[in-house]
Amino acid sequence: MTATQESSKAQTPALFRPRLLIETARVRLGTYDRDRDLPHVIGQAALPPPGDAMLRLAEEEAKEDRDRRDGVTTYRPARHVALLVALIAEGRLAGVFAP
């Protein structure tokens, strides 16, 4: 495991999310296309390396989850699922999550 993989793994918290969110993300994983989906999810055209993308996605997903838990009216389940899909896919590409 490379230093980047070790760093990414150490900084990635375990995900404990509602079953429906996780299962929906798993279903959508099969259609994830990094070149198409990641720019929309992170809001930038340039694609960062998978480990860097994963860390950024983890931060954004954690914020989205806080909004869900707090009942924030701007919470969007579709965005939350998209973040989870990208987070899991990028984690796999970075070698942090098992395929």
Score class of each variant (00 low, 15 high):
residue 89 A to R: 04
residue 20 L to W: 00
residue 9 K to T: 11
residue 88 I to W: 04
residue 26 R to E: 13
residue 44 Q to V: 07
residue 12 T to D: 00
residue 5 Q to K: 05
residue 99 P to T: 08
residue 55 L to R: 11
residue 21 L to D: 03
residue 45 A to D: 11
residue 51 G to P: 00
residue 3 A to R: 11
residue 97 F to S: 01
residue 91 G to A: 01
residue 20 L to T: 12
residue 65 D to Y: 15
residue 78 A to W: 01
residue 12 T to N: 04
residue 19 R to A: 12
residue 12 T to K: 01
residue 55 L to C: 00
residue 55 L to V: 09
residue 95 G to E: 07
residue 37 D to F: 08
residue 43 G to L: 09
residue 30 G to T: 02
residue 32 Y to A: 04
residue 77 P to T: 13
residue 28 R to H: 13
residue 45 A to I: 01
residue 13 P to N: 14
residue 92 R to L: 03
residue 11 Q to G: 07
residue 62 A to V: 08
residue 44 Q to P: 00
residue 49 P to D: 15
residue 60 E to S: 14
residue 61 E to C: 02
residue 28 R to Q: 15
residue 78 A to D: 13
residue 41 V to T: 10
residue 68 R to M: 10
residue 71 G to A: 10
residue 66 R to G: 00
residue 74 T to W: 01
residue 63 K to G: 09
residue 23 E to F: 07
residue 73 T to D: 14
residue 77 P to R: 13
residue 61 E to Y: 11
residue 15 L to Y: 11
residue 62 A to Q: 10
residue 78 A to H: 05
residue 72 V to Y: 10
residue 22 I to W: 04
residue 82 A to T: 02
residue 74 T to D: 11
residue 39 P to G: 09
residue 18 P to F: 00
residue 84 L to S: 10
residue 1 M to W: 01
residue 5 Q to T: 15
residue 81 V to L: 09
residue 83 L to G: 02
residue 23 E to L: 12
residue 63 K to P: 03
residue 26 R to D: 11
residue 79 R to P: 02
residue 58 A to P: 05
residue 81 V to E: 12
residue 70 D to P: 00
residue 53 A to S: 05
residue 80 H to E: 13
residue 59 E to D: 12
residue 10 A to T: 07
residue 41 V to R: 04
residue 96 V to T: 03
residue 67 D to Q: 15
residue 94 A to V: 08
residue 93 L to D: 12
residue 14 A to E: 13
residue 51 G to K: 00
residue 34 R to Y: 06
residue 9 K to R: 13
residue 42 I to P: 09
residue 36 R to Y: 12
residue 14 A to K: 05
residue 68 R to Y: 10
residue 33 D to R: 12
residue 14 A to F: 06
residue 61 E to R: 11
residue 51 G to T: 02
residue 30 G to Q: 01
residue 87 L to A: 10
residue 97 F to T: 06
residue 75 Y to S: 09
residue 44 Q to A: 05
residue 37 D to C: 10
residue 43 G to N: 05
residue 53 A to I: 01
residue 34 R to D: 05
residue 91 G to R: 07
residue 19 R to Q: 13
residue 53 A to V: 01
residue 4 T to F: 14
residue 67 D to N: 12
residue 50 P to G: 12
residue 24 T to G: 07
residue 2 T to A: 05
residue 48 P to D: 08
residue 21 L to N: 03
residue 64 E to R: 05
residue 74 T to F: 01
residue 88 I to D: 08
residue 23 E to P: 03
residue 34 R to T: 06
residue 33 D to N: 13
residue 50 P to F: 10
residue 14 A to T: 11
residue 1 M to N: 03
residue 6 E to R: 14
residue 67 D to T: 11
residue 23 E to C: 12
residue 17 R to D: 11
residue 78 A to I: 08
residue 50 P to K: 15
residue 94 A to P: 05
residue 61 E to V: 02
residue 70 D to K: 15
residue 41 V to L: 08
residue 9 K to F: 09
residue 62 A to G: 05
residue 36 R to P: 06
residue 87 L to K: 07
residue 66 R to Y: 07
residue 84 L to F: 03
residue 2 T to Q: 04
residue 76 R to N: 13
residue 69 R to D: 08
residue 45 A to Y: 00
residue 48 P to R: 08
